[in-house]
């Protein structure tokens, strides 16, 4: 015991504790990344002292340094600050997209799978039609129809995800409906509504959750793509996709592209890692 130093003891204990929770290191890291991103979007002012809108023209296009972590842009604004302040709209819009996709898709899938018959046929065709239009094109025409704003880009992204969630929920509902315990519940007098809320919904939602998390990552990417094309809020907004789009005109100062791209990729990677972990532990 005397040979073991104090530090190795505590790190050993920590490893035990992590093992008890069965959280792999990469998943813990991913949760840390997501925690930072959420903190950025809730309270950006605590993470930076610069202004995201007003720049210092004398300091334009500086490279990354201690005072400007990601460098500065063509107007002398601190890029790290712009990324931090852009988080809220980039991330919350992805959340809106997922909620739309899961709610509407889930409702369609639930009705189609649970009621069956002509409802199922009608919804199946609707889903086929939504799936037949390339996802990104669908998002583009929807956002064109309702106007170029980040929230509309989020709605468009959500609409393009409805079909996928409708299909997944439908197949889960059908699988559960045929299970023996549902039959037992029905035979012992459970009403349709009771079976739906007590058995079918919880079971379906369990397998939809990891996919919703995965969709969250994808939505961040699609919304970034729409912002990149200029279909989101115009500058001085600083959505990640928009920052990359502005940076592409200044490729001589590559950090203007690499820094926001790095943040986007790390966020999406973390979200995807969490989704995979949720699926495995299920």
């Amino acid at each position: 015991m005397s040979l073991v130093s104090n530090t190795s003891l505590t790190s050993g204990q920590r490893r035990d504790r992590l093992a008890a929770f069965r959280v792999p290191v990469t998943v813990a890291l991913s949760f840390a990344v997501i925690a930072i991103v959420i903190a950025w979007s809730l309270a950006p002012q605590f993470f930076t002292t610069h202004s995201p809108v007003v720049g210092v023209p004398a300091d334009k296009l500086l490279g990354p340094s201690l005072s400007h972590w990601f460098g500065t842009d063509h107007l002398g604004r601190d890029l790290y600050t712009r990324v931090v302040y852009g988080t809220a709209s980039s991330v919350s819009s992805a959340l809106v997209a997922v909620v739309i996709g899961v709610l509407f898709g889930g409702l369609i899938g639930l009705l189609a799978g649970f009621l069956g018959g002509w409802v199922d046929v009608v919804f199946a065709r609707l889903v086929d039609v939504l799936l037949s239009i390339p996802k990104f094109l669908l998002a583009v025409i929807v956002v064109t129809a309702i106007g170029f704003e980040t929230i509309n880009a989020a709605i468009a992204t959500g609409v393009s995800a409805i079909a996928f969630f409708a299909r997944v929920t439908r197949s889960e509902v059908i699988k559960t409906r045929q299970a023996t315990f549902v039959e037992a519940s029905f035979l012992s007098g459970g009403s349709r509504w009771y079976i739906l809320t007590r058995h079918v919904l919880p079971n379906a939602s369990r397998s939809v959750l990891p996919l919703a998390v995965l969709q969250f990552g994808e939505s961040i990417l699609i919304i970034a793509s729409l912002a990149f094309l200029g279909y989101g809020d115009p500058p001085p907004a600083s959505d990640w996709g928009l920052l990359i789009s502005i940076g592409k005109d200044y490729l001589k100062w590559p950090w203007l592209v690499y820094a926001p791209a790095f943040v986007t990729i790390v966020t999406v990677l973390s979200v995807n890692r969490i989704s995979r972990w949720l699926r495995k532990t299920d």
């Binding site: 990552g217 789009s245 490729l251 592209v257 995807n272």
Partner: peptide
Amino acid sequence: PSLFLSVPNFVIGLVLIH
């Protein structure tokens, strides 16, 4: 595959151009 899924294609394009 998971990495490829997380990188938007405009970023890959810009990195390649750069």
